[in-house]
Simulated assay, not measured.
Amino acid sequence: MRLRIVTPLSIAVDLDGVGSVRAEDESGGFGILPGHADFITALAVSVVSWRQADGHWRHCAIRGGSLSAEGGKNVTVTSREAVVGDDLENLDKVVLARFVAEADAERKEHADSTRMQLAAIRQIMRHLRPADGEGGWR
């Protein structure tokens, strides 16, 4: 199989001869072997692992994204960020912890931004409401 792991800024992995791929989505971990049916799934912040032709396992921490399997021989992972490494323990503890913290910070920023937008809309609506007891706008 051919495995590609890409980010907006780089191609982290582009290998032929991959024997299997392991990944994790919302439902849990799963594996892909050559000949797998076509599908696409959203990935969690996790580690994607693959067995190379020589039998050794390699790993890549990803910051969420998507995985697609096509034609039983191509697997493509797209992610906002990807860190390739041989040390699974380091990827699991250090890199994934950073990815999770960054994702939490982004969720908080998004919630704060939404609150500010709603407050601005409420303020605009107060100025557009008709004045009480009058038929027109204030």
Rank of each mutant, 00 (worst) to 15 (best):
I5A: 08
I5K: 00
V6T: 11
V6P: 02
L9P: 03
L9S: 09
L9Y: 02
S10A: 08
I11H: 07
V13A: 00
G17H: 10
G17C: 06
V18L: 00
G19C: 09
V21T: 06
A23T: 08
D25R: 01
E26L: 09
E26N: 08
G28V: 01
G29D: 07
G29R: 07
F30C: 05
F30S: 03
G31P: 08
I32A: 09
A37L: 00
D38T: 08
F39H: 14
T41C: 06
A42N: 14
A42K: 15
A44M: 05
V45D: 03
V45N: 07
V48R: 02
S49G: 08
W50Y: 05
R51I: 00
W57M: 03
H59W: 14
C60P: 14
R63T: 03
G64A: 05
G65W: 03
G65V: 01
L67A: 02
G71F: 15
G72S: 09
G72D: 14
T76P: 02
V77H: 05
T78E: 05
S79F: 02
S79I: 06
S79H: 04
A82D: 13
A82F: 08
V84F: 11
G85H: 00
E89V: 01
E89Q: 07
N90M: 08
D92P: 00
V94E: 09
L96Q: 04
A103K: 12
A105V: 14
K108P: 11
E109G: 15
T114G: 03
Q117R: 10
A120G: 11
A120Q: 09
I121H: 01
R126S: 12
R126A: 15
P130Q: 09
A131P: 08
A131T: 05
D132A: 11
G135D: 14
G135I: 06
R138Q: 14
